[in-house]
């Protein structure tokens, strides 16, 4: 059984977000790029499954769609323990074009489980996994907080707005994973970092679909008013302000 983990290359979560060109493009100067946090968790879970002989998972491949500048992030995924990596050589596209490109790769390489993080921490789309499933006409499950595989049988816990559900789904399927899927992201060990250097990142040509969306401009959220401090000995005053000034209680 083979798992494919889709990874996004995103600014480190502590990055101060700035824009250039009169707010038309993201200012990437000085930005540290990392694996999208949810993708890192889904990679971790995929590796845990591969390392468990009972799961039947034999290999974990990571895939990224984007320019060569993302290769350090892909190498990081290899260093963490992925067996193999694919990069679709394309300019950054929207979820639709990315999903169409990944679907092409899946068609030729045949994966059993395809995992995507619930959203990327940059464009917060949460669409790629579901689109991929529809392009491939395979089942998709979202909100996955637990994924267990034993002898080819998949058991999933998904979180809905009403609580949790235990579901099962046949292979192959595409899963959209969120918090809970793995406890802590796996960290690359020195041996992994050394091995990742010599692994090859396989390159595919750009996918068949153009983006259906385009970013016109960015704006920063309006600045908040300065904090009004309330005396710790009179916290009742806070209740008064919340009731009569903010009118939220």
């Amino acid at each position: 059984m083979k798992i494919l983990v889709c990874i996004s290359n995103v600014p480190d979560t502590t990055t101060k977000i700035r824009f250039t060109g009169e707010n038309t493009s993201f200012d990437s100067s000085g930005v540290q790029w990392v694996i999208n946090p949810w993708d890192e968790l889904s990679l971790t879970r995929a590796l845990e499954l591969r390392d468990d002989p009972a799961s039947g998972v034999k290999s974990v491949t990571v895939i990224h769609s984007g320019p060569a500048s993302a290769e350090p992030t892909i190498r990081k995924a290899l260093a963490i323990g992925a067996d193999d990596a694919v990069r679709i050589d394309s300019p950054s596209g929207d979820a639709y074009s990315v999903a169409a490109g990944i679907a092409e790769v899946v068609r030729s390489e045949q994966y059993d489980i395809i995992l995507c993080g619930v959203e990327s921490s940059d464009y917060n789309g949460s669409m790629v996994g579901g689109m991929l499933a529809e392009f491939l006409e395979i089942p998709s499950v979202s909100g996955i907080s637990e994924l267990n595989v034993e002898g080819g049988n998949v058991t999933i816990t998904r979180e809905t707005d009403e609580g949790k559900e235990i579901v099962s789904v046949p292979l192959p399927f595409a899963g959209v994973v969120q918090k809970g899927i793995a406890k802590e992201p796996r960290i690359a060990a020195m041996r992994g970092i050394m091995m990742a250097r010599s692994k090859q990142i396989r390159i595919y040509e750009s996918g068949p679909e153009e983006s259906l969306t385009g970013i016109k401009s960015f704006e920063k959220p309006p600045a908040r008013d300065a904090c009004k401090f309330i005396d710790a000995d009179n916290p009742e005053q806070l209740i008064d302000l919340l009731q009569n000034e903010a009118k939220v209680i």
Partner: peptide, 17 residues
């Protein structure tokens, strides 16, 4: 107009279809 960068900005996105 949508939330991007986890709430640190908003993007104006053209839906072309």
């Amino acid at each position: 107009c949508k939330r991007v960068f986890s709430g640190n900005a908003f993007a104006h996105v053209v839906l072309k279809t």
